[in-house]
């Protein structure tokens, strides 16, 4: 069974998608019954943690959207379904069959240039997925993968390892353990892409600190470069002509299951 999500994970995920909510507000919503209660679970290292069902995330998003429209909490409560939604369908990796070929030879871990940063090598996650897909051991592996494809080219069984890790990252698996120090970048990237159709070369500026000032129409981007150049201002990307259609299409694409 999936243990659920920690409060911190829920807040981080929401922050990445551009929602702002504090821990305190979250707990207040739980108290009001707007959100489900967390399940108490003892930790091996001592102490307890509370795990919330995964649908909490969607429900909280729905609440925040309704709040944006100016609805009061009481009105929101009336609008939201009372019961928990039916359990989500098990997540399926489209090339799951090919994972069965993994014979745990360990090459994917050994060849990986960033293996030192991984909690578990890719093959361990593949093996765990083969046993019980819904209960992966906690690991940062999908987030550490830089997608260099070295493992895929060397895998004797030609398993689509990078695609599998991409799938896990997309689905937020394994739950509870993520490894991203700068979700803010991701948020800025998407907001620029949606407001302009073009974004910033974040692939390249990931080493820098970035500050965005001003509203969408008059954005100022400041980059702090390592080294003597210090902070410099750069122009926001130019806008594309087909922006309204692009926005609509992106929204539909986001709904892909």
């Amino acid at each position: 069974m999936e243990p659920g999500l920690l409060l911190e994970d829920i807040l981080q995920k929401l922050a990445e998608e551009g929602y702002q909510i504090s821990k305190r507000t979250f707990l207040y919503y739980v108290q009001l019954g707007l959100l489900p209660k967390g399940k108490r679970k003892g930790q091996k290292k001592g102490g307890v943690k509370f795990y919330y069902p995964t649908w909490t995330l969607e429900r909280l998003k729905a609440i925040l959207e309704l709040k944006k429209k100016g609805l009061k909490l009481k009105e929101i409560q009336e609008r939201l379904p009372k019961k928990a939604p039916s359990p989500p369908l098990p997540k399926t990796f489209s090339q799951a069959e090919r994972l069965k070929d993994c014979n745990a030879c360990g090459i994917c871990g050994a060849i990986c240039p960033v293996y030192e940063e991984m909690d578990l090598p890719p093959w361990r996650l593949i093996q765990a997925w083969e046993e019980v897909p819904d209960s992966l051991p906690s690991a940062n592996t999908p987030w550490v993968c830089v997608g260099c494809y070295l493992c895929e080219t060397r895998c004797p069984q030609e398993i689509p390892i990078v695609e599998f890790l991409r799938f896990l990252r997309r689905e937020g698996l394994p739950p509870g353990r993520r490894w991203r120090k700068h979700p803010e970048w991701s948020r800025i990237f998407w907001s620029l892409l949606e407001e302009r159709g073009r974004s910033f070369d974040f692939g390249a500026v990931h080493a820098y600190q970035i500050r965005v000032l001003g509203p969408a129409e008059d954005q100022r981007l400041l980059l702090r470069l390592p080294g003597p150049e210090g902070e410099k201002e750069v122009t926001a990307p130019s806008k594309i002509k087909g922006l309204p259609a692009l926005k609509r299409a992106l929204e539909r694409a986001r709904g892909w299951k």
Partner: peptide, 25 residues
Amino acid sequence: SDWNCCGAREIEEAPEGVGLFLAAR
């Protein structure tokens, strides 16, 4: 003419359709 961003590394965490659409356009 009117090219758009390919989605860089960020598409990897979005549903497959997002990255495919950005490239396909």
